[in-house]
């Protein structure tokens, strides 16, 4: 009887050792989270041509493409004016006078100012704002009663950074 108990115990220890010594290694797996990558301001070293500028501006404001003929004609108009910044200003204000321009409402802007700022930076400058930029623009919107999305878009479209890529 005592021998059989020893035998059972011996067999149980053997089984325990056998199962515990042969464990399968877990497979390591790596995945990447989706992150949207944008250039920063420092990477913009090339100046846009007049044609590139108006094509991108139109896409940003109307979310449709300009025809090649329109681009050619607008370039000629810009060439015919000495102050190019002024020419761009007039073109933007003409676009803003078009009923098809797509702009957020003032309420939409004020409902989530941070989201509006981020969306505007990404849309026009193809990058996220820094915290300092976000802070400045947020205060600018909050403290200026006449600021509308149109004015913000106008400023971005007229900025020097928007002329570079």
């Amino acid at each position: 009887m005592r021998d059989s108990i020893k035998t059972y115990l011996f067999i149980a220890v053997l089984c325990a050792l056998a199962f515990s010594s042969c464990k399968k290694e877990p497979e390591a797996s790596f995945i990447l989270n989706d992150v949207e990558l944008y250039p920063n301001a420092a990477g913009k070293t090339k100046i846009k041509s007049n044609e590139q500028y108006v094509a991108i501006l139109h896409a940003n404001l109307f979310q449709t493409a300009l025809s090649a003929n329109d681009i050619f004609e607008i370039n000629n108009c810009i060439e015919s004016i000495g102050d190019k910044e002024l020419a761009r200003e007039v073109i933007i204000s003409n676009f803003m006078n078009d009923s098809d321009v797509i702009l957020p409402t003032v309420d939409e802007m004020n409902t989530d100012i941070d989201a509006f700022i981020t969306e505007t930076y990404v849309r026009f400058l193809v990058r996220y704002p820094t915290e300092a930029e976000k802070e400045y623009v947020r205060n600018f919107i909050i403290t200026n009663p006449y600021v509308t999305p149109e004015i913000v878009y106008f400023s971005f479209a007229l900025s020097n950074e928007y002329m570079y890529y």
Binding site: I91, S93, N94, M96, V137, F156, S159, N160, E161
Partner: peptide, 30 residues
């Protein structure tokens, strides 16, 4: 067609803040 229908903005209420924000953006990029 491209320049003749420019919107007239109020010089103080609209143009002034417009330039103010532009100058801020330009300073950041300069």
């Amino acid at each position: 067609n491209y320049l003749g229908d420019a919107k007239v903005y109020h010089p103080e209420n609209e143009l002034s803040p417009m330039y103010q924000l532009k100058y801020f953006l330009d300073n950041s990029f300069d």
